[in-house]
Design a protein around this nucleic acid. Structure first.
Lengths: 202, 202
DNA sequence: GCGGTAACTTACCATCAGTAACTTTGGACC
DNA sequence: GGTCCAAAGTTACTGATGGTAAGTTACCGC
């Protein structure tokens, strides 16, 4: 005789957390496109307008997810870099932390690098993450090669950021049964080319 | 007194070309998401079912656009590489041709690298383009560094492909009024790090 | 206990991908 | 030149889904 479940009220902040958890899972699972707001709401156990009252729009919800991942990513990489001595070690540890985080948080990773580009705003947010990374790396390079023109440093930093991202995506999409490239190997390949090249600039 | 425009019939292949032109323009203009099939149809001057009779679905239309860009990109880069002598020159000329093509075909570029990731299938097609590039580059690297383990060569090739893509996106999204990085500069920055690094491997 | 506010739901609209059934055009063939 | 007829195209619809307005209910402070 079905006692219809009484409407449970939950504090706003807590509900927000629940929704973000569900959204990351649903968006990364089915893809942002195919994921309906109703599906997210159902996972949380509420109805659609609740999502809208918290995040305004589907895009707003995606943006909030991206922002959360951004924070986590920044935390983990800057913590790793802080433990290093010298620019090379900083780049190496930061890069390794980047790959490790993406390994540990697969849904977050796929949300960021596979789903975020659907919306203008989310793509812009992702671009800002990259800008942050680029600035940080350009700073490291400047310490290592102080004579170099800033524009060249920025170009190099973009090379490194792009390389990291591509390696991450390749690692993630390794469908072939072959042995997957480990985070340490990916870091090595990057440092091989990039840091060796940097060390031998005229 | 409005002579209502008589229904003009057009050969299938020609219509297909028209639709692809319109689709690239509309998709890259408003973004794939925000572009309705009706909007594409209106640009062509037909109605929606015509698009479906040619391409089956919105995703199918996107895929056809991506396939076309892929062919053009492959043509232009392999032509450039064919004119080179030795692996370094091949990589340099191929990279430069890549950047030049994206400069010349801005809508095609933005379609490929901003809009393609919305659909699973288009993302897979893009990934295949990257795989093609990676294989080609890994071949060049193998000539230059024949003692190196294949897996390492592949890792390096991914570094290069990712760097190219990132540099292209950075160049494209240069909103700041500053002097935009030229195709030649982008190529230089890439070769600086990557080829110099390669030349000094143990 | 008893308001009142904030959380939540029901019931709806508008847009757009996709489709079925019908109509017209232009070339082939005589 | 007339007459078919198959391909090219249109009208008119459905279903799914992002988004919203108005009403309902649970909890917190007094």
């Amino acid at each position: 005789m079905e006692t219809r479940t009484p409407r449970r009220r939950v504090a706003r902040a807590e509900r927000e957390r629940q929704i973000l958890d569900a959204a990351v899972a649903v968006f990364s699972g089915r893809g942002y496109q195919n994921a309906s707001m109703d599906a997210v709401a159902e996972v949380v156990g509420v109805t659609k307008p609740v999502l809208y009252s918290h995040f305004g729009s589907k895009e707003g919800l995606l943006l909030a997810c991206v922002a959360r991942v951004r924070t986590e990513l920044l935390d983990v990489t800057s913590a790793a870099a802080a433990a290093a001595d010298g620019p090379e070690d900083m780049l190496r540890r930061g890069t390794l932390a980047f790959f490790d985080y993406l390994d540990a948080q697969k849904p977050a990773w796929s949300l960021l690098y596979s789903e975020a580009s659907v919306s203008q705003a989310a793509a812009a947010a992702l671009e800002e993450i990259r800008a942050q990374q680029t600035d940080f790396i350009a700073g490291l390079l400047a310490v290592q090669a102080p004579e170099t023109a800033p524009q060249r440093l920025v170009g190099w930093a973009h090379v490194i950021v792009g390389a990291c991202e591509r390696l991450a995506l390749y690692r993630g999409s390794a469908a072939d049964g072959g042995p997957r490239m480990s985070a340490a190997e990916a870091t090595d390949h990057l440092m091989d080319l990039v840091w060796t090249g940097l060390a031998h600039q005229p």
